[in-house]
Design a protein around this nucleic acid. Sequence first.
DNA 1: CCCTGATTCGC
DNA 2: GCGAATCAGG
Length: 178
Amino acid sequence: MNWTDERVEKLKRLWSEGLSASQIAAQLGGVSRNAVIGKVHRLCLPGRAKAGGTVATGRASAAKRTTSAPRAPNYASRVTTRTVTRAVGATMVKEEIEIEPYQEMEYRPASNVVVPISRRLALTELTERTCKWPVGDPLKEDFHFCGCESPDASPYCGYHAKLAYQPVNERRKVAARV
DNA sequence: CCCTGATTCGC
DNA sequence: GCGAATCAGG
């Protein structure tokens, strides 16, 4: 991939906006985060103030809110927290969300299925262990992938794996020709 | 183990 | 100039 003027400009912009090298690499496409960092140095762009890891974000003050119903006292408060970073226009949004394994306390519908919350990842941001279940219309802007954590080397999270590998189980296979 | 940026050095 | 490998850290 060539460092065209456009790409260099985009690099400068995103870097100044505080995006990480890997995220910039993802947005540019076709380059690694190392390439981005190397380019940043060659351009003599100002490095990150404090080296090593995350730029200071107001994580403490930012979103850490209890979104769901109160837990039953019996359940251990197993709360999965996950840090989601995404670029929204010209702003980096870094928030910590809480995902509770138990959707409801006692009210359990017949089908006890926990629908995962999509992380809305772009194609370039998928990794080995993110769910690659596509969501939405690929031709539209808001197309994205589930992006939830997928166990082992599975291409999908637990929920979407069930969907993916469940051919005709739902109903009794009337026309079972296999 | 996931991630971050920084540096080096062969190409 | 480029970027993978490596280093150093959270």
